[in-house]
Structures are given as C-alpha cells and as structure tokens.
Simulated scan of single mutants.
Amino acid sequence: MKLLVIGASKGIGLETVRYALGRGHEVRAFARSADRIAIDDAKLDKRTGDARNAAEVGPAVDGVDAVIVALGLPKTLPAMMQKTTLFSDTTRVLLSAMKAAGVQRLLAVTGFGAGESRTKMSTVEKLGFNALLARAYADKTAQEGLIRASGLDWTIVRPGILTSTAPSHAYDVNVEPETWHNGLISRGDVAHFLVHAAEDGSYLRDAPVLTR
C-alpha cells in the first residue's frame, strides 16, 4: 500500500512510519519537521508541511491508498491546557483533500476521553482530565464528529494512556461501549493496530478503545 501519515515526525506517527515500512509499504510522511525524520528508506517520502494548509495537504493526499492521522500537541502544560482547534481545523482540510483526490480510507487517532468514550471515565479520571486535557479533547471530539459525517471509510482510534515501552502486539481492541476503559498502551502497539487496520480494512466506522 501507499500510506500517508500525518503527524509523522513524533510519537504514534513516527512509530507508524517505522512499522509500515517494516511491512513493506510505501510511506508518505507529512509533518512540519518531516525533513528531520531519522529514517533512510527508499520507500519513505518525507513531506514537510502544515496540516492546516490545503495547498500543502492536497498534493500529499494525491495517489495514496489510505491516510493515517496521528497529530499531537507538545507535551507541555501550557499547550495541553489552552484552547486549540488544531484537530478540527486539520480534519476539515484533510477531508476536503481526500474527497478531491478520491481517497476513501481514513484512520485517525484521538484518545480515550474523546466523544462518547468520556462517559466511561471514572470520577477520579475526570478530575485530572478536566484540569489538563478538557480543552484539547473538546477539539478531538469535534474532530470525531467531522469524521463521522464525512461519508469516508473511517476508523477512529482511541488509545488509553500512551507509553514508550516496546510494543507487545498483544492488546485489547474494545469496540463495544460497555467494554471501554482506560489503561496503558504503547505507541508502538497503536501503530501496529493502525497499519493492520489499513491493510485489511477492518473496524470500518468503528471507534475502538485500545489498552493493554
């Protein structure tokens, strides 16, 4: 496959690039700092750009089989606490570009606490969530709404608490709301899920919660 990974220079995005290349896919890695991705591979196309810029996103989408969105905010207290529209703004631009290019398959990472999964948080979890992440996740919820209304073949992926531990490739994919709960999950395991779901077209129009 030819995969576009948006947010490819760090975290889940970078792990997705690595794993997809290891699976033999062509990868178009899109990020502000894509040129600094320390991977040399003939099947890797590094595209430096702003995911909110339609003139840069359009060419990146053209000709790919699937798009994987793994955007994140800087891991700083001010970035996490301030209001953002990064996720919804990026999604609006991307959906328009995908429709123009005829690309149907979209996988987007949000997180446990976005959309209706927030109702499954415990009282203690909600206290910390409301203090630190509520503003960012309000925009992730808006992002999910845009994706659901898009008419594309989408999968929304909601990982629990992310870790940098080695991927186990053994994790829970909780689809039904009664099974949703928070927990740890490595970034590498999220990448594993994304690439395999892109390959086999599974979890169409589902929004699973991933945990160990």
Rank of each mutant, 00 (worst) to 15 (best):
G49R: 00
R52T: 15
V124C: 00
Q143F: 00
I147K: 05
A79K: 03
P74Q: 06
A108Y: 07
Q143E: 15
Q82L: 05
L86Q: 12
T123N: 09
R92A: 08
K99A: 13
G111I: 11
D40Q: 12
S150F: 06
K140T: 11
L133G: 00
A79P: 08
R118S: 10
L73Y: 00
A34W: 02
T155L: 11
M80T: 07
L71C: 08
S117I: 08
K126N: 13
Y137P: 06
R36M: 10
M80A: 14
M98R: 12
K43I: 01
R47P: 08
D65I: 07
A97P: 12
R92K: 14
A149V: 03
W154H: 13
D89F: 11
I39A: 04
T85K: 14
A149R: 12
A114G: 15
I147H: 03
V67W: 05
V69M: 12
M121A: 13
R32Y: 03
G102K: 11
T90N: 13
L152W: 02
T119N: 13
L44I: 05
D62C: 01
Q143G: 06
V64Y: 04
K120A: 15
T155F: 01
E116R: 14
K120S: 15
A54V: 13
N53A: 15
L106A: 05
A42W: 00
I37L: 02
S96D: 15
L107Y: 05
A42H: 07
A31M: 02
G128V: 04
L106P: 08
Y137R: 11
K46E: 00
V69Y: 03
A34H: 03
F129G: 10
A134I: 14
A66P: 01
V64A: 11
A54K: 13
D62W: 00
G58H: 07
D50H: 04
L127H: 09
D50A: 08
A42T: 12
T85A: 13
G49C: 10
A29C: 12
G63W: 05
M98I: 11
A60R: 02
L86D: 10
Q104E: 15
Y137I: 10
A29F: 10
S33L: 06
A108L: 08
A138I: 04
E116G: 04
I68M: 13
E116K: 12
S117E: 09
Y137F: 15
A138S: 14
A55C: 02
A60T: 08
T91H: 02
I37A: 01
W154V: 04
T141D: 12
L106F: 03
K75T: 09
P78K: 09
G145P: 05
A97F: 08
K99G: 14
Y137L: 10
G72I: 09
V57Q: 00
K99I: 06
L106T: 02
V103W: 04
G63E: 09
A138C: 05
L152Y: 04
A79F: 03
F129Y: 15
